[in-house]
Nucleic acid binder design. Structure first.
Length: 324
DNA sequence: GGTCCTACCCTGTTCAAATC
DNA sequence: GATTTGAACAGGGTAGGACC
């Protein structure tokens, strides 16, 4: 999956940052004209183009509804209708139309705000610190001498990648568009959720375990609960019903100590689902039932995370323990 | 009446990004 | 440095209550 990130400048006389993200490896460039930017897309064929520039104008006043929402969340944004920003917006809208006419999907991103939500230092705090932060969240290949435009383009491409993987949400501008922003949950947690939904229970357990080690209560218990659910589903797959029963009981104990909502997950609902699965497994374990109703697999639904794909109810054949 | 403290209002400053 | 908007924050002024 390839994603192209652009840190757009208002004028074609000044260079814009371009980033091509593939398998978490980035390649960054500088480009001036719209034609150059389009040629990059034609060369690398990205699944998504994430542009750091407003791609719509406010219906009235100087702020769009998405800008107001970001301000409400404590993220500082600039009004789009003063000189430089207006030029940038007009170029962004023009460029979006060019990309879409060639069949590319385009989203608006805001790297500065995304950096705030991802806990990364903004470039004003030091470009080296931002580069270090991007490396920590998994981006490889950033040049040590990358300009701030290239680093912001890398952030833009990463937010685009998050959008394709359901790790970000659209803050609507009320006109059919809006700004794609990362969900305010830890990346490893969301990666675990995605893997779990796709039937990769072992891999989900690995992802959650990685953050569980350093998490504080109540998140620690929450993650332990999720890990036990994933482990129970592996046992179900192996027809080890007593083992699954024990793991679900343990999951219940961990989730019991959690508040009503954590990282956007409704814990009351999750506890009810775990209870229903446990009853089903108990029936099989004592011979009252023969097979598992897989629709009882607990669904983990963090608020804001889209349901773009169907939940995989059976375990993936590729979900095998990782050799350490 | 004088002093002190608290609450509230108003004003000014700062900050954000990008360009000239 | 100026330009843009809007929120947050700091600081000054004022009003009102409590106390000596």
């Amino acid at each position: 999956m390839t994603v192209m990130g652009i840190d757009l400048s208002a004028s074609e006389k000044r260079a814009s940052g371009v980033c091509i993200l593939r398998n978490m490896k980035v390649k960054t460039f500088l480009a001036k004209s719209d034609e150059d930017l389009l040629n990059f897309a034609l060369q690398f064929q990205p699944k998504l183009v994430a542009i750091d520039a407003p791609l719509s104008l406010p219906k009235e006043g100087s702020l769009r509804s998405c800008d107001r929402e970001l301000i409400r969340l404590g993220i500082k944004v600039l009004p789009v209708n003063f000189g430089a920003m207006r030029k940038l917006t007009e170029r962004g809208i023009r460029l979006k139309m060019s990309f879409e006419s060639k069949g590319f999907s385009v989203v608006e991103v805001f790297p500065g705000g995304a950096q705030d939500l991802l806990g990364l230092p903004r470039k004003q705090k030091g470009l080296a610190k931002l580069v270090e932060g991007l490396k920590k969240i998994g981006l490889k290949g950033l040049k040590p001498d990358a300009t701030h435009d290239e680093v912001d383009a890398a952030t833009a491409s990463f937010v685009g990648w998050m959008w394709l993987n359901g790790f970000s949400e659209l803050v609507s501008d009320g006109q059919g568009g809006g700004i794609v922003m990362p969900l305010p949950y830890p990346l490893k947690f969301m990666e675990g959720v995605r893997l779990y939904r796709n039937g990769f229970y072992w891999h989900a357990h690995e992802a959650w375990e990685e953050i569980w080690r350093t998490a504080n209560e109540p998140y620690r218990s929450f993650l332990k609960g999720l890990i036990q659910i994933a482990a129970a589903l592996i046992q179900c797959d192996r027809n080890r019903w007593n083992g699954a029963l024990n793991l679900l009981s343990r999951a219940q104990r961990y989730l019991e100590s959690c508040p009503e909502k954590l990282w956007g997950v409704d814990l009351t609902n999750l506890r009810e689902q775990v209870d229903a699965l446990k009853n089903e497994v108990a029936k099989i374990s004592c011979g009252q039932k023969v097979s598992l109703n897989r629709k009882l697999k607990p669904r983990i639904l963090p608020e804001g995370m889209p349901l773009s794909q169907k939940e995989r109810l059976k375990r993936s054949k590729r979900d095998l323990p990782v050799k350490r």
